[in-house]
Design a protein around this nucleic acid. Structure first.
Lengths: 208, 208
DNA sequence: TAAGTATTGACCAGTCCGGTCTAAAGTGCT
DNA sequence: AGCACTTTAGACCGGACTGGTCAATACTTA
């Protein structure tokens, strides 16, 4: 195995290195991320990083692969596609997203900038993995939706958009409100209550 | 005057320098912005930048001042606060924002990152200017709104939020769709039509 | 004890940084 | 034309930081 050395490390140390690397790349993009910062934040010597990984680029690819797997794991198994109610579907998607974000903020942020970053020589197997995740995600959001629930005097596709913008808006609002706090120690109960109130308004307004 | 030299330059050259500087700071934040890039993109010699401005920080402050003035000019004079219809108010605000963005993308982007950037020793007169703009902007959005227009079975403040998230969502959507195009040469007509269609849906759904 | 593995951080050459300064070119007055 | 003054360019400076190497050490196992 290519990453035998790294993956034989004890769990804790592995995680420290991954966290430091995700964070550094997320905050600075590929080019400007500093391997020096990574080793310092991970608490290891400079040499070890290049003992575990061939070079900076190879480390980056390892992280992309890792991040895609994590996200995939969250999304694909937790959304019930039998529910044909669009707002209920969005509710699930939003909760999955927020949970995933709270538990893996660095990974999330990393993938967010990964899309924007002009990635250096991404191997094709990673591009494919990424493309697949996108199409699967799309299916999860829109397949098997009952459009007859909506009031018939408006364009349903536009209402889809409006609902999604509402989801995004609320998520950003919560993230902003919680800025600086450790997400793992936050009680999201009250936030979900508030969220449900918004969903009720959307149903009242957009459904028959 | 401190910036006599710079402001006596012919209009064109001044603008080239401002554009290059706004763009560089916007894309990289204060610390990582490079004066070398700025002079290269502005097409001037390195020495001149430090002939016009004392140093990097002083240039940055000049840009902040300039940007705040530009934004202020757009917003304060073009929104009719006599109109008590919230959606109409948001429509105006969104159009002003998009117009301003299309005509000054660099300035807009610069101010966007300025908020996030931990700004180096911002002089108090600039902080004050900034604070004032924020409160004025708030007034423009929410003062003198007729809340009786809304249906009475929902929380009006939450509907405010939903409408604003819709505005933000549509703006982002358009900006994404037009990515890479020169905004000044785009015909926004069709986009406004589409925008009005969204506003109609919002009125139908959220008003009595 | 000896072989083998894991680990460190000083060190390398190179890039880029903000800022300076010399020398030249341009401008305007007499 | 000659002189004083302003405007311009970019070579250059010390210093910070970069990705990556490597010799020296500590630890583990037999």
């Amino acid at each position: 195995m290519i990453h035998e050395k790294f993956e034989n490390l004890d769990e804790n140390k592995q995680q420290r290195i991954l966290d430091a690397a995700f964070k550094e790349f997320a905050e600075n993009g590929y080019e400007r991320a500093s391997t020096n910062h990574i080793v310092k934040n991970a608490g290891i010597g400079k040499g070890m990083l290049f003992y575990y990984f061939q070079n900076k680029k190879e480390l980056y690819h390892y992280l992309v692969d890792n991040a895609l797997q994590i996200i995939r794991y969250y999304y694909l198994n937790r959304i019930n596609m039998q529910a044909t109610d669009f707002i209920e579907r969005m509710k699930q998607a939003t909760q999955v997203k927020m949970t995933c974000f709270a538990e893996n903020p660095n990974v999330f942020h990393f993938l967010g900038t990964f899309f924007l970053d002009s990635v250096p020589d991404l191997p094709s197997y990673l591009s494919q993995q990424y493309e697949q995740l996108l199409t699967e995600g799309n299916a999860i959001m829109y397949d098997n939706i009952d459009k007859t629930l909506f009031r018939d005097d408006v364009d349903v596709d536009k209402v889809f958009k409006l609902i999604q913008w509402a989801m995004d808006g609320y998520q950003n609002e919560v993230i902003n409100r919680l800025q600086g706090q450790k997400l793992t120690s936050v009680d999201f109960g009250p936030y979900w209550e508030e969220f449900y109130a918004y969903l009720e308004i959307l149903k009242k307004s957009f459904y028959r």
